[in-house]
């Protein structure tokens, strides 16, 4: 059984067990979304007419008053009747939407690139359109568990997806699958693209300076974003900080060196939080957000991009505002713990 959701002048069929967000994105209708697990509230919408089942919507994200007022989380809510909904915010990404798709990918490589860190290359049977910085979901074989990994690719690298995965102690996806049983040649289901962590459309990108701060494998989407921004505007100032515990956690250093060589206004700053840098090394000690404050006097007119654990992202938001970056120019992708 399916119900119809009407948003603006578009109609989308939603299956009984399908979230509204899933149905909209598959139909190529853009809806703001970020975490897709009910914790961020980005996909909040208003149900103007009709009934929904809020499913597992957390009370913190969708309060009783908001439910009363007709709001719903598109990533959690299922339609229970034909409904009319409206989004609360404006469209982003220049209105260009890449439909959500399910594909079966082949594992091309699964290499250890740093301490407890793997790079997965997944070959797709056909190209997948996405915005650099978005993510895909992998389903752990034999389970319903889904895990989200950012793409390190640029938009033209649409046949082989690059994901960076860090091992999580006891993790169903990492310890019991990617780091142990996943083999080259395995066929795995991939769903994507998802998320709102991407650059403005090229014609509305002002080419302004950018600072990107990644913690651990939070580097992945920043690589796609930085390379895309630099190819749009090779003279653009791009500062990329990679925060890790120690030297053994750093990776993609050759790629960073190459970017530094090709683009004089690109700077890569590796920052070690738990290790003193060796004498004369380029590594810095401490936290990347503190180094940003030391390095940049004013971030007026800059955009900021943060991907990593929530405390790092929150420290980054504060650091950017302290240097007077406009809050609407601050973009964040938080690693949120799996809820299952």
């Amino acid at each position: 059984m399916a119900f119809t959701a009407t948003v603006g002048n578009q109609q989308v069929s939603c299956g009984e067990d399908q979230s509204m967000l899933d149905a909209f994105l598959r139909a190529g209708v853009w809806m703001p979304n970020s975490c897709n697990q009910g914790t961020c509230g980005t996909c909040k919408l208003r149900v103007v007419d009709g009934d929904v089942d809020h499913g597992d919507s957390p009370a913190d994200t969708l309060t009783a008053e908001e439910r009363e007022a007709g709001l719903a989380l598109a990533c959690q809510a299922r339609l229970r009747s034909d409904s009319v909904v409206e989004t609360l915010g404006g469209a982003v990404g220049g209105g260009i939407t890449h439909p959500l798709r399910d594909l079966t990918a082949t594992v091309l490589s699964n290499d250890e690139i740093a301490r407890d860190t793997r790079r997965l290359l997944l070959e797709l049977p056909e190209p997948l359109a996405f915005h650099p910085g978005q993510y895909v979901e992998l389903t752990v074989p034999g389970t319903q568990l889904r895990r989200q990994y950012s793409l390190a690719n640029t938009a033209d690298e649409d046949k082989v997806l690059e994901l960076h995965v860090r091992s999580v102690s006891g993790g169903a996806a990492t310890e019991r699958w990617i780091f142990t049983s996943m083999a080259v040649g395995d066929q795995i289901p991939v769903t994507g693209p998802l998320g709102d962590f991407f650059l403005p459309a090229e014609d509305s990108d002002d080419g302004g300076p950018m600072v990107l701060i990644g913690g651990g494998t939070g580097l992945a989407p920043l690589i796609g974003l930085a390379r895309t921004a630099l190819s749009r505007d090779p003279g653009r100032r791009v500062l990329l900080y990679h925060g890790v515990r120690g030297v053994d956690d750093l990776y993609n250093l050759d790629q960073m060196a190459e970017l530094t060589k090709v683009y004089p206004a690109f700077t890569f700053v590796p920052v070690l939080s738990h290790e003193a840098p060796a004498a004369e090394s380029v590594h810095r000690e401490g936290f990347p957000t503190d180094h940003f404050i030391e390095d940049v006097d004013s971030a007026r007119g800059w955009s900021g991009w943060l991907c990593g654990p929530p405390p790092m992202v929150e420290a980054g938001v504060r650091a950017f505002k302290r240097r007077r970056m406009a809050p609407r120019m601050i973009h964040r992708e938080k690693f949120t713990p799996a809820t299952d």
Binding site: R300, K321, R322, R323, R324, M325, P327, R328
Partner: peptide, 15 residues
């Protein structure tokens, strides 16, 4: 008027 004033204030001086 109040909305636009506060939007511009926080945009220029978020700290």
């Amino acid at each position: 008027v109040m909305r636009i004033a506060l939007e511009e204030l926080f945009e220029a001086i978020p700290n």
